[in-house]
């Protein structure tokens, strides 16, 4: 039982990171119907932005809670900027083109960030400074809960609530929902859909940046290819929940995180990477639109 609880705590905290990244995928898909394959690499950039920022500001030498939040904010802001630049430079010219073209461009951007990253940061992994010193909050024979998963969970939940507030309560959030529902109609109603799309990238990339920092807290080895697999799995999480659906992304991320840690803990850690995809195949075969997704049938 205690071991199960241990796995659950790790799974939920890992799942909340998947959820953060999945949100960016799902929001961009919502407004553009584009699988932004470069999103996982923005997550990687988040970790590197944090790495260089904390070294430059000497936060790395004397970790404080304030320093951690400063690093987090910096990484989020820098990633937001990168996200908007990517959208304006690479995707905007393709707005009216077939979706496949944009998808290939997204793969191209992803390759560019990975290879550019290898060139800029070097191929070897860097060690992310421990911005928060690990302490044990609860300890018993089989169960150890340290502060890290708790902080990860709290920070990501806070960001998700903030996102929910922006999407549901603000004018720009309403414009986002309108654009996702029908871009042309939204444009006809006087919404500047170009700005809305850029804003969507801004939000999604900021969340991915935060995800990068949070991952680096627990897995401090960071390298330019670290975004590849988590990015893909976060996308799987978004599809699991029903792509385009914001609560769905959170649900999908949690399911994925928990089932991955359970499989790794109880069955075999080498099968861990397959479970995400196996879940995906099973769920989509039962419910082709994902858990919370809905689809309108094609009109004949």
């Amino acid at each position: 039982m205690q071991e199960f609880l241990q796995q659950l705590v790790n799974g939920v905290s890992w799942g909340s990171i998947y959820a953060l990244i999945a949100l960016g995928y799902t929001m961009v898909y919502g407004v553009l119907q584009l699988i932004n394959f470069a999103h996982g690499d923005v997550f990687m950039l988040g970790a590197f932005f944090g790495f260089y920022f904390s070294r430059w500001t000497k936060i790395a030498q004397e970790p404080t809670l304030f320093g951690f939040f400063a690093t987090l904010l910096f990484a989020m802001a820098a990633c937001a900027l990168v996200g908007v630049i990517i959208e304006r430079a690479a995707y905007k010219p393709l707005r009216e083109r077939p979706r496949l073209t944009a998808l290939i461009t997204a793969i191209g951007v992803s390759l560019l960030l990975e290879n550019g990253g290898q060139l800029l940061f070097g191929v070897d992994p860097k060690f992310f400074p421990s911005l928060i010193s690990e302490t044990r909050l609860y300890e018993s024979a089989n169960l150890v809960i340290s502060n890290l998963p708790v902080i990860i969970l709290v920070v990501s939940l806070a960001l998700m609530l903030l996102l929910r507030f922006i999407v549901m309560k603000t004018t720009i959030g309403k414009a986002m929902r309108a654009t996702a529902f029908n871009r042309e109609a939204a444009a006809l109603m006087g919404i500047n859909t170009n700005n809305v799309i850029s804003f969507t990238f801004l939000l999604g990339s900021a969340l991915a940046g935060a995800g990068g920092i949070l991952v680096a807290l627990t897995y401090p080895k960071i390298d330019p290819l670290m975004g590849l697999l988590p990015g893909l799995k976060a996308f799987v999480a978004a599809v699991l929940g029903g792509i385009g659906n914001i609560p769905g992304a959170v649900l999908g991320g949690m399911i994925l995180g928990v089932s991955e840690t359970m499989v790794a803990g109880y069955i075999s850690s080498t099968l861990r990477d397959a479970i995400a995809f196996a879940l995906l195949v099973v769920i989509l075969l039962v419910k082709p639109t994902g858990l919370l997704g809905s689809r309108v049938g094609e009109k004949v």
Binding site: Y29, I35, V239, T270, L280, V281, L284, L285
Partner: peptide, 28 residues
């Protein structure tokens, strides 16, 4: 067979997933 029920991006991600499952199974 899934392609009968899934379209577009959903099919894309399922085929990608199948490919990855194959790879992980080979690893084992």
């Amino acid at each position: 067979i899934p392609s009968l029920r899934l379209r577009g991006d959903y099919l894309a991600i399922v085929t990608l997933g199948m490919g990855e499952i194959v790879r992980v199974l080979i690893l084992n």
